[in-house]
């Protein structure tokens, strides 16, 4: 695959940057995320996490299902802050 292919669209992280992160010591999806921001975008990794997992697997010789996925973070979907925090002016 070309190093310039975008793997995480939300954060525009390329295949090459993910390879560099793995070379740098990342062995988990969180490890790649901390080094590249892949998975930190608007979709919170829903689109890119599986591909990142596969790339780590192929580079480190693990099975994709053995690569630790990202830590799950609340909320599941983006929420408008006014809904939670109650806009006192309304």
């Amino acid at each position: 695959m070309d190093r310039n292919v975008i793997i995480c669209r939300c954060q525009e992280v390329t295949y090459g940057e993910i390879l560099d992160a793995i070379a740098d010591g990342a062995t988990t999806v969180d490890g790649v995320k901390k080094r590249t921001r892949a998975g930190m975008g608007l979709c919170q990794g829903k689109t890119c996490q599986r591909r990142v997992q596969q790339i780590i697997a192929s580079q480190t010789g693990q099975k994709p299902e053995d690569v630790l996925p990202a830590t799950y973070r609340v909320p599941v979907r983006p929420i408008r802050m006014g809904v939670i925090g109650g806009n006192k002016d309304e």
Binding site: M40, L42, Q44, R73, V74, P75, P78, I79, R80, M81, G82, I84, G85, N87, D89
Partner: peptide, 13 residues
């Protein structure tokens, strides 16, 4: 910051 009411939050940690 009142205008935050219309912005979405996507993650907590």
């Amino acid at each position: 910051i009142p205008e935050l009411a219309d912005i979405h939050f996507i993650r907590t940690f």
